[in-house]
Computed example of a mutant assay.
Amino acid sequence: MTDARNRWAAPFGWIARASRVPGEERRSLVQTTKAAVAAVLAWIIATAVLDLPQPFLAPYAAVFLVQATVYRSLRGWAQQVGAVSAGVLLAAGAGQFIPSVTVALGLVVFTGLLIGSWRGFGDSGVWVGVTGMLLVSYGNATEPVLLADRLLETALGAAIGAVLNAVVLPPLHGGRLRAATSRLASAVADVLDETAALVRGESPEAADVLQDRMLDVRSLVAEAEEAIGWTREGRYLNLRGRRETREEPLANLVTLWPPLTQLIDAVSEAARSEQPFRHPGEHGRGVVGDLLEALAEVARSGDPDRLDRCSKLVEEIDRLLVTPTDEVTTSIGLGAMALPARRIVQQLHAD
């Protein structure tokens, strides 16, 4: 009973979130509304203003040109108009030189799909063959006026969709970027804390758990890279581009992935090793653990002022590596951990 109630309530919850929170739901609602408005405008202009007969391509093109970014809308307009133009010309040629509709249909579809595979047409390439097929099958291929109408309808609808998307609340992807930043920062901080616990002497079995956690972090890094790409593309040609969230904090977290992987590999290898000289002594492990916990705090807070403590701990590790102590035989394991840890601190300082 509860599950059924939740299923019925889900759409209302989605609408409530869209009106309350500036997230994915609101962006989807805005884009859907713009697509509907673009279709209606394209139909009204095509029928009431231009008096085009059966202008079904106008609203169709308008809907598909309300894309996730302004750049994709403008690029899609050029691609779709180009694809439909090629299909119209192909149908016109078939109508002039091939008397059989059946033969013309097959040749137009075959040739149109081959031409549409050119990467310059993008996702709109299929419309070379489809447009030619529709015109030939409807018997419009031999009527230049109707061919011109189909081209005009497509250009009109595509232009309305692209312009509306570019002018009315052009889409931004800052929400996706902020969410990805928060998730990745939290995951990196948790992994650093777990690595610190392993350095300090937690059971070697914890190294296997840590490796599984790293797979989760790798997935979040991929998500972060995708969010950065969407944000950069969303800013391009966007009238609201200056309001877009900066991607630098997330990009900086992504750059920590290679040294973080090396650090955890070094710690895990040392923890599993049965050779005493591979694992640092108690004091060295304590310093490395303190460094990892300090880095976790920086990752969570994003506060560069906390890096001073990290730098001091790196200097302490360097001193342990060059100064003879009772733990001198552990320098191999300590050195393997020190290099990626130093790279993480340097990368955070550079950012």
Rank of each mutant, 00 (worst) to 15 (best):
R306A: 13
E293V: 09
L313E: 05
G302T: 11
G289F: 08
A296H: 08
V287C: 03
D318G: 05
R285T: 06
L292E: 13
V314N: 09
G302V: 13
E316N: 08
E315I: 06
E297P: 03
S301Y: 11
D290F: 01
C310R: 03
E315R: 14
L320G: 02
R300L: 12
V298P: 07
G302C: 09
D318C: 00
L292M: 15
S301V: 12
G302H: 13
A294T: 15
K312M: 07
L291T: 08
D308Q: 13
R285G: 15
A299T: 13
L291C: 08
E293D: 13
L292C: 15
G302R: 13
D305W: 04
I317A: 00
G289T: 11
P304I: 04
V288E: 02
R300H: 11
G289Q: 03
C310P: 03
V314C: 08
S301T: 15
E315V: 08
L321R: 10
L295F: 07
L292V: 03
C310H: 04
L292S: 02
A296F: 09
L321G: 04
V287I: 15
A294S: 15
V288P: 02
E293P: 00
S311V: 15
R309E: 11
G289I: 11
D318L: 01
V298K: 11
R300D: 02
L291Y: 06
R319M: 05
R285F: 01
E293M: 05
R285W: 06
D318W: 10
S311P: 00
E293K: 12
R319Y: 04
A296V: 11
G286E: 05
L321M: 08
I317F: 00
L292N: 04
A299K: 07
D305P: 00
E316A: 13
G302P: 10
G289A: 03
I317N: 01
L295E: 04
A299C: 15
L291N: 04
L307N: 08
P304A: 00
R309F: 02
L320Y: 13
E297S: 14
P304K: 03
D308L: 14
E316Q: 14
L295I: 11
R300P: 04
L295V: 09
G286S: 10
S301E: 11
P304H: 04
S311N: 10
L313N: 09
E316M: 12
R306Y: 04
A299D: 00
L320Q: 13
E293L: 10
K312N: 07
A296Q: 03
D308R: 15
V288A: 15
L320T: 05
D290L: 12
A296K: 12
D303T: 12
D290Q: 14
D290Y: 02
L292P: 00
L307S: 06
V287G: 04
K312F: 02
L320K: 05
E315W: 02
D303K: 09
V314S: 01
L291Q: 06
D318V: 05
E316P: 01
L321D: 00
D318F: 02
A299W: 03
R319H: 09
L313Q: 10
R285K: 14
D303L: 12
L292A: 09
E316L: 14
